[in-house]
Simulated scan of single mutants.
Amino acid sequence: MSDHEYSILDHDRGRIFQYIGTGITILATLYAASWGLLGQLVTRIFPSVWGFVPKTLDSGVAFAVLYFAFNRWFWRNWVCRKLFGFHNVSGEWSVAGTTLGPAEALPQGGEPRQWAGNVKINQQWTKIGVHLRTKTSESFSLSAAVKDHDGEALLMYSYSNEPAARARTADGLQVHRGYCELRFSEDGKSASGWYFNNMGRVTYGEMALTKIDRRT
């Protein structure tokens, strides 16, 4: 699964860069007092270089480290999520799906068709990837957005679905595109929503997700 960029609606990522920049400014102030570790080391070896290069290099390294750490880990912190309105929907989930229509996609009698699968969501501050796997196919997200919905997370994403070889030949399934919306509970342990497929397979239905706790 390849992760891709996504939108966090009603959230200005520029504020985060501003805070990181503020942190770098504080570090630069310390460097001005000759407290930069790299600067002290270089000063001992090459005294004439201390005027510019060590401070610039230290600041660049500090920004890269702070940004990497925030993007991968810090944003998941409860304080950061509450302060900036982030929602963490990452993890593995069991899926109970129901195909509701159209009529030609349902068994004889028109009863909804049940299906099951697992979905894995990789999420960082800037990237996300949603991978759904069932017995007959797997889908990968192409674009996505997350927004706050009355304290709960609403994940909206488009995807491409690739049927397994046996499903292509036996069931006539074709590669298709779709769209899904999932609303996650505040405790982050469950979600529910709906989906529809098109461009190769016209179906729609609903999904219920339950988080898989790997610690048990």
Score class of each variant (00 low, 15 high):
E5I: 09
I8Y: 08
L9C: 10
L9S: 14
R13K: 11
R15V: 13
A28W: 07
T29Y: 14
G36C: 01
G39T: 04
V42R: 01
T43S: 14
T43V: 07
F46E: 10
F46N: 11
S48Q: 15
G60F: 03
V65N: 06
F68C: 10
R72W: 10
W73V: 10
W73D: 12
N77P: 04
C80N: 15
G97W: 03
G101I: 01
G101R: 00
E104L: 07
L106P: 00
L106D: 03
G109W: 01
N118M: 13
V119S: 04
Q124S: 15
T126G: 04
I128N: 00
I128C: 03
V130F: 06
H131T: 08
T136C: 09
S137Y: 01
S137R: 00
S139F: 02
A144F: 05
A145G: 14
L154M: 13
A164T: 11
R168K: 08
R168Q: 10
A170P: 05
A170K: 13
C180L: 07
R183M: 09
E186Y: 05
E186S: 15
E186A: 15
S190Q: 06
S190D: 05
S192K: 06
F196L: 13
N197E: 04
N198L: 11
V202M: 09
T203F: 05
M207W: 09
T210H: 13
I212T: 03
I212D: 05
